[in-house]
Simulated assay, not measured.
Amino acid sequence: MATDYDAPRKTEEDQSEESIEELKARRHDKNSGKVDEDETEAAESFELPGADLSHEELAVEVMPRQDDEFTCMSCFLVHHRSQLADEKALICRDCA
């Protein structure tokens, strides 16, 4: 693309005036009055294949706590003893 380097350059004031004029012109644009639709309402109308899991059952086997594990009293996650930061308060290193 050819550039004419001899053409007069626009100052910042000219550019700001142009942008204000563009904004005024866009204000009266037909599309500016439209309101964007709510994303959650749009997402509720979509039906994904395999999304109905009402007939499925969740089978989880709960393991008893091991001797080398503890439950953090801050985040309530089960950690290995090597992650223990405070033995009295039973706080993991991530929460300490």
Rank of each mutant, 00 (worst) to 15 (best):
C72V: 05
S74Q: 12
T11W: 00
P8C: 05
D67E: 15
E41F: 05
M1H: 07
E69L: 03
K88F: 05
D94N: 10
E57M: 07
A51Q: 10
D94H: 13
N31S: 10
F76C: 10
A7F: 02
R81D: 01
V60N: 05
E69W: 03
M1I: 00
S16A: 06
D68Q: 14
F76A: 09
T3E: 15
T3V: 06
E56H: 11
S32M: 08
D52N: 15
L48Q: 05
D86Q: 08
S54A: 08
A89K: 11
L53V: 06
E37I: 08
F46A: 11
T11C: 01
L53A: 06
H80E: 13
E21W: 03
E17L: 00
A7S: 04
R9S: 03
I20V: 04
Q83K: 07
F76E: 13
M1E: 04
G33P: 00
A89Q: 12
E47H: 06
T71H: 07
V62Y: 09
R65F: 14
E22T: 11
D52M: 04
I91C: 04
P8S: 04
L58A: 12
D68Y: 08
E57C: 06
L90V: 05
D94E: 14
E61G: 02
V78Q: 03
E57A: 11
E41R: 01
C75M: 05
G33A: 11
V62E: 07
T71V: 10
R27F: 14
C95D: 12
E12D: 02
E12L: 03
E56V: 09
L58C: 10
E47L: 07
E69M: 08
L90E: 15
A59N: 12
S45G: 13
S45E: 09
Q83D: 09
D68G: 09
V35Y: 09
R9W: 03
E21V: 00
L77T: 11
R81M: 07
D29C: 07
D29M: 06
P64Y: 06
E56A: 07
D36I: 05
D94R: 13
S45N: 12
D4A: 02
R81P: 02
A7P: 02
A7L: 03
K34D: 06
A85S: 11
Y5D: 01
A59F: 13
P8N: 02
D68C: 07
G50F: 12
E18L: 12
H80P: 05
L23K: 01
S32E: 13
E61H: 07
C75H: 07
L77Q: 10
G33Q: 13
A42D: 12
E13N: 00
E18F: 10
E13T: 00
E18H: 06
E41I: 12
